[in-house]
Amino acid sequence: MLDLASIDVEEIAAALADPTDYDHRWLLDPRTGEVVFWTSDTGIDGENPIEIDELDLILIDPLPSYIWYRDMVDFADGISNGTARRRLAAALEGRGAFRRFKHQIYDSFPDLIPYWHAFRDVRAHGRAVDWLLENELIDDDAAAKFAADHPEPTLP
């Protein structure tokens, strides 16, 4: 088992959110917890191409976009300001929801930016810890302690 304190949970969260085109992938070394970036052209060292299946590393497959979309919906639903809640909810309808949601927060409700970042990050980091647990790289106690130490923030 890896020591959760020595793992870059933020980096794993970023990898889980990075939609892949299979020309690049994120991987984790199960011995050290180090996250590495692989490309089909330059391998993991930036110079030597290597087939991904030749590496003794664990692929970090990105999560589907609907999971990240759900975060935006939950955030919008949790806002007490009725105008902000309605405009964010409307931004989430149809194609381009991620872009419209971002524009609403940054352009119309900049006071919500730190709340959105905190909310998004806690959820993303929690998913990274869940991924580590599912891959049997940390134990249940470490995951439970992380969850207890990183509750979702209160929304305005």
Rank of each mutant, 00 (worst) to 15 (best):
L92C: 04
D111T: 08
R100Q: 06
F109L: 06
S108W: 14
V122W: 01
E134C: 01
E136A: 11
R123Y: 13
F109Y: 15
P110M: 12
E136H: 12
R120I: 01
G126W: 05
F119E: 03
E134M: 02
L112A: 09
F101D: 02
A124M: 08
E93A: 14
I113Q: 08
A97V: 03
L132N: 00
D111W: 14
N135C: 08
Y106W: 02
R127Q: 15
D107T: 12
H103R: 13
H103L: 12
H125F: 09
G126A: 07
Q104G: 05
D107Y: 08
F119L: 06
H125R: 15
L137S: 03
L133N: 00
E134Q: 08
R99S: 01
L137I: 04
G94D: 08
L137V: 02
R127N: 15
F98L: 09
R95A: 14
F109S: 06
F109G: 09
Q104I: 05
L137P: 00
R99W: 03
F119S: 03
H103S: 11
W116F: 11
S108D: 15
L112Y: 10
Q104P: 00
V122F: 06
R100T: 03
A118M: 04
Y106F: 06
F98H: 13
A128G: 03
N135I: 01
P110Q: 12
L112C: 08
Y106Q: 11
E136F: 06
D130V: 03
E93L: 13
P114M: 12
Q104R: 13
V122H: 09
D130A: 07
E93N: 13
I105P: 04
V129P: 02
H117K: 11
L133P: 00
D121I: 10
A97K: 05
L133H: 02
A128R: 01
D121F: 03
E136D: 12
G96R: 04
L133D: 01
G96Y: 11
I105V: 15
V129H: 06
A97C: 10
V129E: 05
I105T: 11
Y106M: 08
R127S: 13
D111R: 04
I113M: 10
A124C: 03
H117I: 10
A124H: 06
E93P: 01
A128K: 02
Y106E: 14
E136P: 00
L112H: 04
L133S: 01
N135L: 10
I113R: 09
G96C: 09
A97D: 10
H117D: 13
R123P: 05
D121M: 12
Y115N: 07
P114I: 13
E136T: 10
R127G: 13
G96K: 07
H125V: 04
A124D: 07
A124E: 03
L132Q: 02
Y106L: 13
R120N: 12
Y115G: 11
H103V: 02
R127Y: 14
